[in-house]
Design a protein around this nucleic acid. Structure first.
Lengths: 203, 203
DNA sequence: TGTACATCAGTGAACGCGCGTTCACTGATGTAC
DNA sequence: TGTACATCAGTGAACGCGCGTTCACTGATGTAC
């Protein structure tokens, strides 16, 4: 936070963060299959061998970007939920809207964070608990629909499957593609309707 | 169907079909990112320039394999539905089980056929109506749950989102990974339960 | 039935591309004294 | 405060890899006559 403007040739100072930022931009502008070490380096204005000092290969870069992606994703859900009152149905529908907005705004990042196979890629991601960032929001918001003493995974599986399926199908244009004006418009209404019928089990 | 055993150097005779078969094997054994023209050619025992006579680039190969994949996928749903009686809930649950069995048996093929973005990749796939193979099964099986005069897309979106979301999340091990013995086991029960509550609108 | 010939489906060598990785190097930074 | 030095984070050249594509070629096939 001092003379970041100097930008001397060596010692970028914050290259790791800059590379992650470059990766995000590449995801937005070029897509997931263009996310390479060399492209990130080029975009950050640094030699292509430089990233090796900060990431353990391309898998490490993807893991770091995923972690940031999960945080952004979680904030989408929280922001949506902060705009509604305490009604359980309003809240569950809100986080689902946040889910879909995120998928629409950041399709490649959405694809990245959900392409990680938790078990098989475990060794590649030492901080694999980072892959659960956001799950707490789903869990908390589902609680009113979970009968006391019952396993919350049932409701969580129902809600998550429903919204995730809609999101992925929408991104591959199975419902005519995302509506840029309102990704949670008419096409999403059937999902909302089903959520509306979830019975509240405790208040 | 004559002397296919001769296998003379030139004129393989059925190379297109052999390359598609090779591609299927590669998907099963090596995964989607190993599906290349050169690998298919090598696996079919042919020079790597040969596929150019049968497919329009790697996109054409993927399209041809997708088409076959959609047919297999559809048969999974039909087979499952043929094993149950006429009860609408039994039938809708059956095609969803078929959906999940297919995803478990052919994860890379599942990934391929659902990675195709229908609109943007349209020009790459002249037979893009082939991308809808299987939708008829969903449509027909959902009919009893659609009120007369209402748009069937509502129920179709609900069922499809639910089962597709579960399938994709399961394949990335979000539910502890697919159970090899019974992919439609306890983890899938919440989805089945939700389907059981779909109201029948006509008989 | 036999022959000439056009067509077609393969071969194999070559090219350029982008990628990850390695390596000797060098300039900047920070610390010990 | 100043100097020596270890450490660290970059550079740039080089390597090998697998990929798609092109191209002249050649052997097999099928048809006209």
């Amino acid at each position: 936070m001092s003379d970041r403007t100097s930008k001397s040739a060596h010692h970028h100072g914050n290259l790791r963060a800059a590379l992650i930022e470059s990766g995000m931009a590449i995801l937005i502008e070029e897509g997931l299959n263009k996310l390479t070490l060399r492209r990130c380096a080029a975009r950050a204005g640094v030699s292509h061998a430089a990233p090796a000092h900060h990431f353990d290969g391309v898998a490490g870069l993807r893991a770091a970007i995923s972690e940031e992606g999960f945080r952004i994703f979680r904030n989408y859900m929280l922001d949506a939920r902060n705009n509604v009152g305490p009604d359980p149905h309003d809240r569950i529908k809100a986080i689902c809207r946040g889910y879909i907005y995120f998928a629409t705004d950041h399709p490649a990042l959405f694809e990245l964070i959900f392409s990680i196979k938790i078990i098989s890629d475990l060794q590649d991601f030492p901080g694999s608990d980072k892959l659960a960032i956001g799950y707490d929001v789903l869990h908390d918001t589902c609680t009113p629909f979970v009968e006391a003493g019952h396993d919350p995974i049932v409701v969580e599986t129902q809600v998550w499957s429903l919204v995730h399926g809609f999101g992925t199908l929408m991104l591959t244009n199975r419902f005519g593609g995302p509506n840029p004006d309102d990704p949670c418009g008419p096409a999403f209404a059937p999902v909302m309707a089903l959520l509306d019928h979830l019975p509240v089990k405790r208040t």
